[in-house]
């Protein structure tokens, strides 16, 4: 086996492994709990994370959703009788799960995300 062959094969294997590692790290899904716990004026909402289809959360409800990878994600909340909310949040590197409360989402304000302890990950 020539040096060139050896190198080419080495590169190929390395590229293969890198692809697998890249797919695993960037594609891993993380959970985001979105609650619509009842406060005074809360109503049924539709939440869209990234490009996924909208998910209905009834008043007082609670839904675990998945986002692909940590980092920045889009969120859109639509509720009856109010303007759509569009915003972004950062999934913290250290967090194992996140919780977002619909009630805390106010137009024009920073989105509040709360890391959930690992014990809760099992839902």
């Amino acid at each position: 086996m020539s040096k060139k062959t050896l190198m080419a094969r080495g590169l190929f294997v390395a590229a293969y492994l890198l692809l697998a590692i890249w797919a695993y790290t960037t594609g891993k899904g993380y959970v985001v709990f979105i609650n619509n716990y009842a406060t005074g004026e809360s109503v049924e909402v539709f939440v869209t994370l990234d490009k996924a289809s909208p998910v209905r959360i009834r008043r007082g409800g609670f839904v675990p959703l998945m986002v692909k990878g940590k980092g920045t994600h889009q969120i859109m909340v639509r509720r009856e009788g109010a303007a759509d909310f569009e915003g972004a949040f950062v999934y913290p590197r250290s967090a194992e799960a996140l919780s977002i409360a619909v009630a805390m989402i106010m137009p024009g304000q920073e989105l509040v995300v709360v890391p959930v302890s690992a014990a809760l990950e099992e839902r």
Binding site: Y16, A23, G27, K28, G29, Y30, K68
Partner: peptide, 13 residues
């Protein structure tokens, strides 16, 4: 829990 195209790539790998 690998999602989207990355999940498919991982499955292929």
């Amino acid at each position: 829990n690998v999602m989207g195209i990355q999940g498919l790539l991982l499955a292929t790998c």
